[in-house]
Every structure is written in C-alpha cells, then in structure tokens.
Design a protein around this nucleic acid. Sequence first.
DNA 1: GACTATTTCATGCAAATGCATTTAGTCACG
DNA 2: CGTGACTAAATGCATTTGCATGAAATAGTC
Lengths: 163, 163
Amino acid sequence: MKRKPSTEATAAWIRLMRVQSRVLDCVEQDLKKAGFPPLAWYDALLELSRAPSGEMRPVELEKQMLIPQYSTSRLIDRLVDEGLAVRRECKIDKRGQFVEITEAGRELQKKMWGAYSAAIEKHVGSKLSDTDALKLCGLLDRLGCSCSDARPAAVAKEGVPAR
Amino acid sequence: MKRKPSTEATAAWIRLMRVQSRVLDCVEQDLKKAGFPPLAWYDALLELSRAPSGEMRPVELEKQMLIPQYSTSRLIDRLVDEGLAVRRECKIDKRGQFVEITEAGRELQKKMWGAYSAAIEKHVGSKLSDTDALKLCGLLDRLGCSCSDARPAAVAKEGVPAR
DNA sequence: GACTATTTCATGCAAATGCATTTAGTCACG
DNA sequence: CGTGACTAAATGCATTTGCATGAAATAGTC
C-alpha cells in the first residue's frame, strides 16, 4: 500500500498539473481582458440559468460546481451584489433558500459565452483534432471518480460548466 | 478569429478542468492529512535541492514554478521562516539574492516525497496503464506552449516538480 | 412531544493572493 | 560620467480563501 508510481504515471501527473494551470490561466486572462468577471461566476450563472425555473438551492450549486460550501455562499453574495441573482425564500425548507438568476444574469452569461468559447477554441480547440480531443476525454475520465464525491462530468451543450 | 470550439474540444476543456482540480485536491488532502505543508513548498524545495549548489535566484525559481513574482517572494519568506531555506547575498548582482536550501529543507523534501509519490500512485498511477499514461502525456503536451511563457515540462526523475 | 443528530447556510478571523507600486541596482548609450 | 530604460525583489492594500464555528431549521428516535 505504498508502491511508488511509475515514471509514466508521474509524468502524466506533472503534465496534468502544468497544462491545466497554464490553459486555465490563459482563458481567465482572455476573459479578464474582455472585461468579464472570473470563470466561477460564469459557471454559477450557467448552472442557475439551466435550472428549470431559473432558481436552485445553494447546496445544489455547490455540488455542481465542486466548490466548498462557504465558497458558494460568498459567490452568491457577490452575484447578488451585482444584481445577477436574487435570493428567494424557500418555503418547503425554512433553513434553506433559493437563488434565482436575474435577466441581467442571463445576459451576462450569454455575453461571456462569446469570449469564453473563443478562448476555448484558441487555447484548446485549435491545438487538438476532434478525435484527439475525444481520446483526451477518455483518458481523463478514467482519473475521474477517485475521491469521495464524484460527479459524472456534465456534457457540454452550448454553455459549458467548466469547473 | 472567433470560431466556436467543437463540442469535442469543449468536452476536453471541461474534463481537463474538472479532473485536475479533483485530482489535485485529493493529493493535497493526502499530504495535509500526513501533516505536510502544501505542494508548492515541495516544488520549491525540490527545485532548490536540484540546483547544483543547492541555491538559486528567486527569478529562476519563479520561472520553474510558473508562479508570479510576488508569490515567489512570499513563498521564500515562509520557507525561510520555517528554517527550510536561507537567503544569501548575491555578489554579482547586488539587487538580487540567492536562496539556499537547508539540511532541514532537504529532509522535509525527502519525507514529503514518500507521501507525495504514494498519493500520485493512488490517484493517478493506479487508474492508468503505463501506455495510457504516455498517451495522456502526449495529448496534454500539445496543449502546452500556447501562452507567452512556455516551459518544456520537466522530466520526472525521483522528485517531480509538480506545478 | 422532548431530545439529539443532521442539514443548510452565514460569518469571524487568519492566511493567502492579486495588483500596483516602491526601492535598489544594472545596463545601454550618448 | 549622466541619464533614461530595464530588471530583481519586496511590500501596502484590497480581495479572496480556508477553517472552524455558529445559528436556525429539520429529521429521527424513543
């Protein structure tokens, strides 16, 4: 129970860390340069906009986005501050609440998708053929469900829940 | 110059973000549970220990680790505070300095490698055959040099500079 | 129903990060 | 040499994180 990793596995680990941090950085920079808020905002807005009634429980959001509870709480604070979402009372469970995306929120999400998708194309799409991208997906998926809480990695439609 | 990414590319992007964040999280948690400092410390110590004379310029460290300048500066502060490294005067360039790893630093690096390598094996090695790990490396490497500053992704010997 | 355990969300506080700026030294060039 | 451009590193300040804890509601149990 303490075998050393193969050099291949180790090399893969390094690549995984370095490449994603670099690519993420590039994409975040592109968004920022275009005057947009961080990716996390986008992800949250997207999740909210996809919810059937445009609203969801913070707990849900938290699970979708794989970020800690307090982090979700504060992210919502910021969205609300900017008028991108509103908190609504939850009648069926008084300790909880609903978060609902506003019109402004939906608009921002759509606008961001323009810059965001361009960045993905620039930093990922243009470097990989479709079949290679698929191969990459397959390999990465195998690393997926290791820890406690897994999530079946959402399928991209036209919005992309990124992280 | 604003083509949309293919759904394959988008899917790959999502996987890349989600999988690495998850795997990194797992590894960091394992290290923390074992009572060790964050991975960034390990990386810095490793780089230092590999330097021919056990010392290097902060600028170098910065380039190796792909982190911003101020971040390096403060990381060194912490290492020094803990007695893992010392700052040395740089005679050839008076505005600069050298950072030298201490014996304690070397020891910590070695100890951490025990837990670290076990974590890599657990969260990466055990999920991927060697050939698949190599394929993954190949695909990831293509995403490598997009932004401004590239780095040829160090080869793992027995230490692994992770990020 | 009373009591405990659990879930949902917020928050105080310390540490870490990002950003812009400062300080100090070097370099290039007239 | 002197002056202006550049590089190495640190730091002040605001924002963000992480962690632990708190407060409120619900669920489970006897």
